[in-house]
Computed example of a mutant assay.
Amino acid sequence: MKKVLLLITIFASLLACSNDDDSSTPSNNIPDDLPDVSQVTFTSPTTITNNYFGPKTTGTIYVYEAGDIGEEPEEEIRIEIRTNTKTVMGVTCFIQHDVVYKDGILIEDTDDWIAEDDNGNLWYFGESVKNYDDDGDFEDNDGSWEAGIDDALPGYWLPIAPYVGQTYHQEYWEDEAEDYAEVLSTNETVTIDLGTYQNCLMTKDENPFETGEYEIKYYAPDIGFIKEEKYVNGALVEMEQLVEIIE
């Protein structure tokens, strides 16, 4: 059984330093709705039971299409679970592999590091990102981060029992990665090309560094993420939806 003690260590160190320096410390900036990873255990972190996540096992690929409203989809996104794992902050994470193609050319290749605690909450421990230009040439690793490095901390990928009004940070790396979500509904009916899904989770996801932009995401029970709507200044501008499950 593993118990992550990073935050306790951070807080203890900051308290010790406060005797000599009354200036503000990083701990003052940690959001109140950042889940406390030091208070949970990860006995079987790569076993996925969270009802709103998918795919849960290797060998299954989720295929999505995305594009601007009013236009034909220009992006294809493929998501699957890798067979290998990644250890972050002492926790063994499963790896969600996410690739994005634009007009058939690879433009992004990402590994997300996720672990499930003993209560069923899914934690987001970071990601490794490779970005490519429109010709398929490597550009950079912008967007990459890892919990436990440079004071970055994990947050919820998905809580086990979301409720309307709940807010939670998905990550916290000050001034770099501070995405957060709010639960808007847990009983949405959502129709996509694959069918109609009942009792869906609906969240509003925001990045504080992208003013006026937010995403509405939908998760179907026993399936996972099925649809995303992107809004800019209140206007719907992009949509992504699940179009195929390959098993």
Results as ranks from 00 to 15, higher is better:
Leu153Val: 05
Gly155Gln: 09
Phe53Met: 08
Gly136Trp: 05
Glu215Pro: 07
Tyr231Trp: 07
Leu6Phe: 14
Asp179Glu: 11
Asn121Ile: 01
Val63Lys: 10
Ile105Cys: 06
Glu176Thr: 14
Tyr132Thr: 07
Asp20Thr: 12
Lys204Gln: 14
Thr43Gly: 11
Leu6Thr: 07
Asp112Tyr: 11
Val37Ala: 00
Gln39Leu: 14
Glu240Leu: 14
Gly90Val: 07
Tyr101Asn: 04
Trp145Ser: 00
Gly126Asn: 05
Ser144His: 02
Val4Ile: 14
Met89Asp: 02
Asp133Pro: 02
Phe138Arg: 00
Gln170His: 13
Asp193Lys: 12
Glu146Phe: 05
Tyr101Gly: 06
Pro55Ser: 01
Val232Phe: 13
Thr211Gln: 15
Glu228Lys: 15
Ile114Gln: 07
Val232Cys: 10
Tyr172Arg: 00
Pro55Glu: 02
Lys102Glu: 11
Ile149Tyr: 02
Val190Thr: 06
Pro208Cys: 06
Met239Cys: 14
Tyr52His: 01
Val63Phe: 01
Gln96Ala: 12
Gln39Pro: 11
Thr203Asp: 06
Glu244Leu: 07
Asp179Thr: 08
Glu76Asp: 09
Glu139Asn: 10
Ile192Trp: 00
Met202Thr: 12
Glu178His: 06
Phe209Ile: 13
Gly165Lys: 01
Thr167Met: 11
Ala235Asp: 15
Val99Gly: 07
Ile192Cys: 03
Glu215Asn: 15
Asn187Arg: 10
Ile61Glu: 10
Glu72Tyr: 14
Lys227Ala: 09
Val237Tyr: 05
Glu213Leu: 14
Met1Asp: 15
Val164Tyr: 12
Pro55Gly: 06
Glu244Met: 10
Asn19Thr: 14
Tyr62Met: 07
Thr203Gly: 00
Asn233Pro: 11
Glu171Tyr: 02
Ile30Ala: 01
Asp33Lys: 11
Met89Val: 00
Thr47Val: 12
Ile192Thr: 03
Tyr197Ile: 08
